[in-house]
Simulated scan of single mutants.
Amino acid sequence: MIGEHVIVGYTNAPGGRDALALAAAITRVTGGELTVATIYPPGSPGLAVEAQANLAHAAEELGSIPAGYLTYESRGTGRGLSVLASRIRADLIVVGSAEGGRHGRITIGATSNHLLHLSSEAVMLVPAQYVPVDGPGRLTLAYVHRPQCDEAVERMAQAALALGIPLRLITLDLRTDDPGKLRDDLALAVRLAWETTGIEAESEVAEGHDVAAALADVEWLPGELLVCAASEDAQPHRVFLGELAMKALRASPCPVIVLPRGFA
């Protein structure tokens, strides 16, 4: 299950603090290991010192919560986090929303953009000013009938069962497809979840003229997590989001987890 070792990209800024709080909340639930990392560019001794100061601030924020702390020199924060995650065998990278975005929504910056196209680990993005609750309330998987999503149905059903929370499968109807086929595909996915784990997944077709309108018409519980599978265009064991999933990510009112292709 995701969350056995979480690495969070930390900066002493609102997005960094949001990511740190959620990463700590995840490891409290999973009992996993937490690593806090700050990336700084090469050839910048002053920024290296600042990175250490950032980690000291993160330690103050976490208090008694156990965590490891790393600084790492890299030409890009996303690249550095991805390399570090592989080295320490983290299974989830958590990053906050870029500055200047809308409250309660995810704004993609250079770091998250890199991770969403090249990370070999699952990536979680946190909406601006998101406040974690005691535990996850429900897993919602954005479902499209394709192999990547079918694999994700099985994995998320297992995760929901382990966490003791509901699983919901949601399909977007943007009034461009056959509604009957969408519902039939969703019913097959619900059956797949039942056959593999015995969990009774909820299902919902969200309708709207665009992705944002469809997601706005859906109820979101406190502690909800939205899960997206990588595009079929992704390289094996890499994250890559398609256009529709990217729009869903930007419109989501809750944290979003993006799974690499072939996630196991």
Rank of each mutant, 00 (worst) to 15 (best):
A142F: 02
L20E: 10
S252M: 03
D177L: 10
L92N: 09
G15Y: 01
D233H: 12
V95L: 05
R146S: 14
A85G: 06
L141W: 04
V153G: 08
E61Q: 07
G43V: 03
S231L: 05
A160F: 07
A48V: 03
N113P: 00
Y69T: 09
G63R: 04
V36P: 09
P132M: 05
T77A: 14
G31M: 09
V205G: 11
F263I: 00
E204K: 11
P132T: 00
V6L: 13
G9T: 15
H57F: 11
V83W: 06
P260Y: 09
I165L: 02
E219I: 13
M156W: 03
A187F: 05
H57K: 10
A19V: 11
I199E: 08
E224T: 07
K181R: 12
K247T: 00
A234F: 03
L118E: 14
Y72Q: 14
K247M: 02
T197V: 02
G208L: 06
V153N: 00
I88D: 11
L182C: 08
P255W: 06
T107V: 10
P66H: 04
G135M: 11
I26G: 07
A48R: 14
P147V: 10
G262P: 02
L161A: 12
S86P: 00
H5G: 15
G101V: 02
T38H: 13
L259V: 01
N113F: 03
I88Y: 08
A59W: 01
Y143D: 02
G109C: 03
A264L: 11
C254Q: 05
